[in-house]
Amino acid sequence: MIHNIYNLTTNDNTRLFFQVWQPAVPPKAVICLVHGIGEHSSRYHDWAEQFVEKNIAVLSYDQRGHGLSDGKRGVIQSYEKLMDDIDFALKEVKKHFEDTPCFLYGHSMGGGEVLNHLITRKSNYLGVIVASPWIVTQAAPPKIAMSFLRVLANLFPSFSIKTSFDAKMLSHNKEVCIKYDEDELVHHMVSFRLFVDAYDAGYGVLQNPDKVKKPLLLLHGTDDQITDSNASKIFSEGIKDCCTFIQYDKAYHELHNEFCHQEVFTDIINWLDALLAKKQANYLEYDNF
């Protein structure tokens, strides 16, 4: 396996930390992975290695305000900047793997971002994989409180607070939870603007399933205490033809670190391989390929 790490500067002068895991031979596909809130791309090292073993490259980056990238922890200028960063990463995929089929993959808040990118922007990725997306968060406050938070987001957009987050909600695997708590690059900060924008973006996704025009694999654990698996189910039911929704009984938030991780990986590989086969047979009929 070849593993490269480097920094790139975006159009708004933000330095983002990138890394690429790839096989020694030309890969059959490449995944562009967007991580969740508070974490960073290196937490996916073992997961990326599994894809490399299947001749699939993985490119990921630390989101702004996260990990080794620039920005105040948990702070964004706007949600559109996050969309721009996905575009930036997809261009980087194109540089490294020009003619290789690309899949966009997001987890948690990154999953919500990927779904928003799917319904609001055009790109040439072949399909989308989303795990435990922030469509609706389990910690969503009452609507009257959201009105107050919107005011605070406008007045103090960069003001951030520390969340009361319990790592035990991530996985049944105690070692995963301990490593998360001990990880110096993990943070628990969220700004008013980030929370409000992500909240609104999630409901924007929920209201627009008809705008999904590419193959989507949507994965969620039934016992996720962080994001709402029922919201994922409702969203998937509104999509015609091109969505595969899989629920994992009793699973928590981080499916790639759960007791069912091998089943999750197999489901992803089978879905991805089926799409690659259809593409090779010129059978795909979805938009923007």
Rank of each mutant, 00 (worst) to 15 (best):
E285Y: 09
V52L: 06
F156G: 02
H172V: 07
G106D: 02
Q262L: 07
G112H: 01
I76C: 13
I2Q: 12
V25H: 11
M169R: 11
N4H: 11
L8N: 08
L118S: 08
I56L: 10
K174D: 03
I129Q: 07
V58A: 04
Y6F: 15
R43N: 12
F195D: 00
N230A: 15
A167C: 14
D273E: 14
Y248P: 06
H172S: 07
P209S: 05
K211M: 07
L82C: 03
D181K: 10
Y283M: 14
N4P: 04
I129H: 11
A281L: 07
F265K: 02
E49N: 08
K240M: 09
E92F: 09
F245Y: 15
P26Q: 07
I246F: 15
S132F: 03
F165I: 08
L115F: 07
P157M: 05
F148D: 04
N116G: 04
K250C: 09
A153F: 04
V196K: 13
I268W: 11
Y61G: 04
E80Q: 15
A145T: 05
N124E: 14
D166S: 03
H96T: 01
R43I: 11
H261A: 03
I5L: 15
E182V: 07
E184M: 11
V176R: 01
F88E: 05
A281G: 09
T9S: 14
L104T: 00
Y199W: 10
F165V: 02
L284S: 13
G110M: 04
E80S: 15
F148E: 03
N230P: 03
V186D: 07
P27M: 05
A89K: 10
K162Y: 08
I226W: 02
H220K: 10
D85I: 01
S60D: 02
K279I: 06
D210K: 15
W21S: 02
Q247I: 03
L272Y: 14
M189I: 06
H66M: 13
E237Y: 08
A57D: 00
V176S: 00
D87Q: 14
D228P: 00
F195A: 12
I239M: 10
H187R: 03
H261L: 08
Y180V: 02
A274C: 08
D200L: 12
G65T: 01
Y199I: 01
L155N: 09
Q138M: 12
T222M: 07
V75Y: 10
V130G: 12
P157H: 04
W271S: 06
D287N: 14
Q22Y: 06
F245V: 00
L59N: 02
H187S: 05
Q225A: 12
Y6S: 12
G71D: 10
P215S: 10
D87H: 13
Y180M: 01
M169E: 00
L90E: 11
R15N: 12
E80F: 08
I37P: 02
C177Q: 05
L126P: 09
L218F: 03
K168T: 15
I76L: 12
S69P: 04
Q138G: 01
L16Q: 00
S160I: 03
I2N: 15
R15W: 01
I246E: 10
A24T: 08
H96V: 01
E92I: 11
Q280R: 13
S69D: 06
H172D: 13
E53P: 00
S69V: 05
A145W: 14
K122C: 12
L33T: 00
F159Q: 07
G65K: 00
H187K: 05
L276I: 06
I37T: 14
H107E: 11
D183K: 04
C102A: 14
L82G: 03
C242D: 09
K213T: 02
